[in-house]
């Protein structure tokens, strides 16, 4: 066989770099949406590669729910320092305090939906015309139809039935004042690809992804970490388990799994044998069959 072909990880990397460079070339004021999760860490790593030997030429935007794993914030700040790029923070707490949104009530309340307003406000006030996200098409069925360049109207909304066709590698980022785009450079990666690549590149990730002994509560079929925001029910009890997280979100609803995987090698093996999707542990997606599509239409990540 010819030696002139790429393996699939190199091809995915090259595609992502191409998309990131298109964003930079086609938009005035792009940002990377940085959540502290592995997908946004990966996108940031790919952006370093895309612009090397230059620094990443645009800021990172963190939509801060206020319900963070403390490690996430520390990780974020260290990364920003190392990259030498600007950080913009959009605060959900501030959106609540200023009356832009109202906190959900009840035991399963989350700040997930509230992030939409904070995100759109941050996009507007910072005049951002493209927000680069770590969304992947394999995550969820509504995401399976996302384009690399995804148009949002001036209310920040997505219209899945009126998307611009993307042929070959030609991406159309043209937009009117007030509209913006979301760009998804790792659209074609699966969870398995992400882990294989993180391992191959030895990318630094928060220790939350690795199994550790943690204080947790069994709720909604997963282990919810104990935090200052967690209100215990009468029949719930705190236990200590060896836990790791497959995704990181709002700490009050992100469930961990019992695991012994405390190295990247072990995670790759574990993910390969996984029987549940990573979003299976997030109660926000369990609300209805079309929960993600509904949130995305409104302007979610």
């Amino acid at each position: 066989m010819s030696k002139y072909y790429l393996n699939y990880l190199d091809e995915l990397e090259s595609e992502a770099i191409y998309i990131l460079r298109e964003v930079w070339a086609q938009f005035q004021n792009p940002v990377i949406l940085f959540s502290g999760g592995k997908d946004s860490i990966l996108v940031t790593h790919l952006a370093r590669k895309a612009f090397y030997p230059s620094k990443i030429p645009f800021p990172l935007l963190h939509v801060d729910t206020g319900h963070n794993f403390p490690e996430t914030i520390q990780f974020r700040d260290e990364l920003i320092e190392a990259l030498g790029v600007q950080l913009i923070v959009g605060s959900v707490q501030e959106s609540i305090d200023t009356g832009r949104v109202a906190e959900e009530k009840g035991k399963n309340a989350t700040r997930n939906a509230l992030q939409i307003t904070t995100l759109l406000d941050a996009i507007e006030s910072n005049k951002i015309d493209c927000a680069i996200g770590g969304g992947r098409r394999d995550e969820e069925k509504a995401r399976a139809k996302e384009r690399f360049f995804s148009h949002r109207d001036d209310f920040g909304q997505w219209d899945p039935k009126n998307q611009r066709p993307e042929l070959w590698n030609l991406l159309n980022g043209k937009h009117f004042e007030g509209e913006h785009f979301r760009a998804f450079p790792i659209s074609n990666w699966t969870e398995m690809d992400v882990w294989n690549y993180i391992k191959r590149e030895d990318i630094k990730i928060p220790s939350l992804y690795l199994a550790h002994q943690r204080e947790v509560v069994w709720r909604n079929d997963s282990w919810i970490p104990v935090s200052e925001f967690l209100k215990l029910d009468e029949n719930e009890k705190i236990e200590s388990k060896k836990i790791r997280f497959r995704t990181l979100g709002d700490i009050t609803i992100t469930g961990g799994i019992e695991s012994d995987a405390d190295t990247l090698e072990k995670i790759v093996v574990e993910v390969a044998a996984m029987k549940q999707t990573e979003r299976g542990n997030r109660s926000d997606d369990k609300r209805s069959e079309t929960a993600m599509e509904d949130r995305k239409r409104q302007g979610y990540f």
Partner: peptide, 10 residues
């Protein structure tokens, strides 16, 4: 099916 949907397997 009304649009292009992408699926992955390895």
């Amino acid at each position: 099916t009304i649009d292009v949907a992408y699926r992955y397997f390895t």
